[in-house]
C-alpha cells in the first residue's frame, strides 16, 4: 500500500480500481486497463478527463457529428449523474453491465431503461414505433406505415400480457426470457480481453511520475 503515492493528478470522477472492481465483474487490472481506454476516449476532443457526447460519437462512428437515437440513449444512461459527461466511475460501472459475466437481470433492466425513452417507467407503443422508425431511417429502409403498425401491434400483443397498452418491467423481463436474442446487444465480448487490447502500465507510470 505504501509503495504508491496517492497525490498524483487524477481526472475528476476518478475512482480507485479496487472500489470499481468490487462493484463490477472486472478485476482490478481490467479496471486499470479500462482507465487507459478511458483516458484515450476522454481526451479525443476536449482533454479534460471526461467523455463528452461528441467524443462518444467520434469513437462509435468515427464522426463527432453523427447522431443516433440509440447511441444517444446509451450515452445518457452511462451519464448517471446527468451532467452531460461520462466520468470514469460511470464508465466502468456501465460497461460492467455489458460484461459477458454480468447478471442477466442487470442487462434486462438496462435494456428496459434504454427503451423507456420518456422515462415513464414503461415502454409505450409510441416509443416503440419511434424506435422502429429511427432504425428504418438510419438504414434507409422504407416500410409502409401499415407494416410498421403491424410489427408494433404484434410485438405488443406478445409482450404486453396485461393488455394495458404499455410494457412494464415485469412484462419486459418475461418477454426477454422468452426471446433472449433481445439482449444480445447487452454483451460485449471485447470486455473479456480488455487487458490485452489496452494493457495497463498504471503501476510503473505512476511510480515514475511521482519520482521525477
Amino acid at each position: 500500500m505504501g509503495c504508491y503515492p496517492s497525490k498524483q493528478v487524477k481526472t475528476p470522477g476518478y475512482e480507485e480500481p479496487t472500489v470499481l472492481a468490487a462493484e463490477t465483474p472486472f478485476t482490478v487490472s481490467e479496471v486499470e486497463a479500462l482507465y487507459e481506454l478511458f483516458k484515450k476516449l476522454s481526451s479525443s476532443i476536449i482533454d479534460d478527463g471526461l467523455i463528452h457526447k461528441e467524443e462518444f460519437q467520434l469513437a462509435l462512428f468515427k464522426n463527432r457529428n453523427k447522431r443516433n437515437l440509440f447511441a444517444d440513449r446509451i450515452f445518457d444512461l452511462f451519464d448517471v449523474k446527468r451532467n452531460g459527461v461520462i466520468e470514469f466511475g460511470e464508465f466502468v460501472r456501465s460497461l460492467g453491465i455489458f460484461h459477458p459475466n454480468a447478471p442477466v437481470e442487470d442487462k434486462i433492466a438496462f435494456a428496459f431503461r434504454l427503451y423507456d425513452l420518456r422515462h415513464t417507467g414503461f415502454i409505450e407503443r409510441e416509443e416503440l414505433k419511434e424506435m422502429v422508425l429511427a432504425l428504418l431511417h438510419e438504414s434507409d429502409l422504407i416500410l409502409s406505415d401499415d407494416v410498421i403498425e403491424q410489427i408494433v401491434d404484434k410485438t405488443f400483443s406478445d409482450a404486453d400480457t396485461k393488455g394495458d397498452g404499455k410494457i412494464d418491467q415485469e412484462e419486459w423481463k418475461a418477454f426477454v426470457l422468452k426471446h433472449p436474442s433481445l439482449i444480445k446487444n447487452m454483451t460485449l465480448p471485447y470486455l473479456k480481453d480488455i487487458t490485452i487490447v489496452f494493457p495497463s502500465f498504471v503501476l510503473s507510470s505512476e511510480v515514475e511520475d511521482s519520482e521525477i
Partner: peptide, 24 residues
Amino acid sequence: CNLNAFDIISFSSGFDLSGLFEEK
C-alpha cells in the same frame, strides 16, 4: 407479420459499442 420490433431495433449502429475498443 412475425417480425419482432425489438429485434428490428437491435440492428441499429447505435448499439455497436465496438468502436470504443478500437485502437485510437
